[in-house]
Design a protein around this nucleic acid. Structure first.
Length: 500
RNA sequence: GAGCCGGUAGCUCAGUGGUAGAGCAACGGACUUUUAAUCCGUGGGUCGAGGGUUCGAAUCCCUCCCGGCUCACCA
């Protein structure tokens, strides 16, 4: 634990000192900006542009941050910014009288409320001719608003570290960041809307779990003082949602944070957002259709198009996804066949032939999935369902009836990256017990990420679980692909950072 | 965890052994339809931190911190 660092503003630089002095002057004049509680606005800034025809000559009240300030003697122009956009304001000295000098106490970043009439300058820009104004709050640190001309920007906040650590500044001054992060929020909203329309119930399940199961990953561990026992932070939503299906909630989903105690990279944040849904009486093909419709819906509703492009590849979510059996995809790309993976020895040999190093803990299925990741995934640019995953890496999925080494499981790929994972859920409690036992054996053999044995979940399944289709989607990854972000940190407001 | 690159003014960046710089921002002045406003002037720095080499270090060496990219585990 580190003691928090306390700064005193007196120690800060002259830019802060000057703003503090301006604040004092305002207070001395009885205009303390921090005493203001409310300012009644008639319009958001963008709506003044949108409704200019009706508003011309009319009086409006608007508010926002000062994002640009151009004082030219006895006339002053400024731009206010709010969450909808920007609007220019105009003040004249002879109309304002003594109050005109208050402009000298304005800084970029301050909040201003103004009342005035709407007009267009001779260069055609919609502007509010200010009659009265009030400072609503003051920024005592300089906000790095860039210089702008049209779409061009100068002196923009580029420093990646500062953009992540002080995301509020990034949001204020970098429109691309703002658009991308808001798009992610709207995606989540549209996913909810899509599922709600189809009769799914959104639920919340425990984050603190006795045994974090449902995926292969190392958990975070925490401690409950009153119970004096250890809990793990969830690594997946799966096993609790299935308990709810057993409890009669036939269509259920959760969008929630899960936690995996693993490395941080451009594609990994220790806490990330998962969507998992379960639909009783649905099979794998039903879930494929659901995924197709979900992406179509989100694309259209959030981005207004079904066509997306990344690195020169165009995809269209109005089209059905391609479907290919995993072992067929591997054969197409490597020439390796199912027979090459019959035994661990042969599978190891086959993997090494295509340049993949096999670790001791790898199972046959693990090796097959490595071949998928290394040799096949990058070719799956168009939306594609790869189905028929090995049984030993899919301990919660039903077997394929005619090929028991593989399961009724698919992964959805897009632009070469995995975006969805779905099973026809295993609902046979006897087989589920046997699968957990296999995972337990792997764990005993040193695989820390093998699925834990969950006796309480088995108990639930023994009371009867319907045939069920299930789906998991990494929301952050989905947001990266649809917004064209190269790093997961660009689609998470506050990504994990080391202590700075 | 490994390799490569980076950290200099509020912001964006120059500066590779010899007095710490530029643009924007700030401050003072001029300017009543500007819009990267313009013009004149002024102030502003723990050069990520610590140690070392040297007459002299932002610069060379070592250690550490933080970030980026690539790789490995994974979603």
């Amino acid at each position: 634990m580190h003691e928090p660092t306390h700064h005193t503003l007196e120690e800060e630089n002259q830019l802060v000192q000057i703003r503090l002095q301006k604040l004092e002057q305002l207070r001395a004049l009885g205009l303390d900006p921090f005493a203001i509680e409310r300012y009644e606005i008639t319009h958001a800034l963008q709506t003044v542009h949108d409704d200019y025809e009706q508003l011309e000559g009319k009086t409006v009240a608007v508010a926002g941050r000062i994002a640009a300030l151009r004082k030219m003697g006895k006339a002053t122009f400024a731009h206010l910014m709010d969450s909808t956009g920007k609007l220019q304001i105009y003040l004249k000295a002879d109309e304002q009288g003594e109050r005109y000098d208050l402009i000298d106490l304005w800084d970029l970043g301050d909040y201003l409320g103004v009342q005035g009439f709407v007009f267009k300058t001779r260069t055609g820009e919609v502007t509010v001719h200010v009659q009265s104004f009030t400072m609503l709050a003051k920024a005592i640190r300089p906000v790095p608003f860039p210089k702008e001309k049209g779409e061009q920007r100068w002196y923009e906040l580029h420093d990646v570290e500062q953009r992540y650590r002080q995301r509020y500044l990034d949001l204020l001054v970098n429109p691309d960041s703002r658009r991308r992060l808001i798009a992610r929020c709207r995606m989540v909203r549209e996913i909810r809307r899509f599922l709600d329309e189809r009769g799914f119930l959104e639920v919340e399940t425990p984050v603190l779990q006795p045994i974090a199961g449902g995926a292969a990953a190392r958990p975070f561990i925490t401690h409950h003082n009153a119970l004096d026992r250890e809990f793990q932070l969830r690594i997946a939503l799966e096993l609790y949602l299935k308990r709810l299906v057993i409890g009669g909630i036939d269509r259920v989903y959760e969008i929630g944070r899960v936690f995996r105690n693993e490395g941080i990279s451009t594609r990994h944040n220790p806490e990330f957002t998962m969507l998992e849904l379960y639909q009783a009486y649905a099979n794998l093909e039903d879930i494929m259709s659901l995924v197709e419709e979900l992406f179509h819906h989100v694309a259209e509703r959030v981005f207004g198009t079904t066509v997306f492009e990344m690195h020169g590849i165009r995809v269209d979510f109005a089209q059905p996804w391609q479907r290919i059996r995993l072992m067929d995809a591997i054969r197409e790309r490597t020439g390796l066949t199912e027979a090459d993976f019959e035994t661990l020895e042969r599978a190891t040999h086959a993997a090494e032939k295509v340049g993949i190093s096999v670790e001791r803990k790898d199972t046959i299925g693990g090796i097959i999935e490595k071949v998928l990741e290394k040799c096949v995934a990058e070719h799956l640019q168009q939306p594609t369902f790869v189905y028929g995953f090995p049984i030993d890496t899919s301990p919660l999925a039903k077997r394929e009836p005619d090929n028991p080494r593989f399961t009724r499981r698919f992964e959805g790929y897009l632009f070469g990256k995995e975006v969805a994972n779905a099973f026809s859920e295993l609902n046979d409690p006897l087989e589920q017990r046997a699968r957990f036992e296999q995972q337990y054996a792997l764990r005993q053999a040193g695989d820390e990420e093998a699925h834990p044995f969950d006796e309480d979940f088995l108990l639930a399944m023994e009371y009867g679980m319907p045939p069920t289709g299930g789906l998991g989607i990494g929301i952050d990854r989905m947001a990266m692909l649809l917004t064209g972000a190269d790093s997961i940190r660009e689609v998470i407001f506050f990504p994990q950072m080391r202590e700075g």
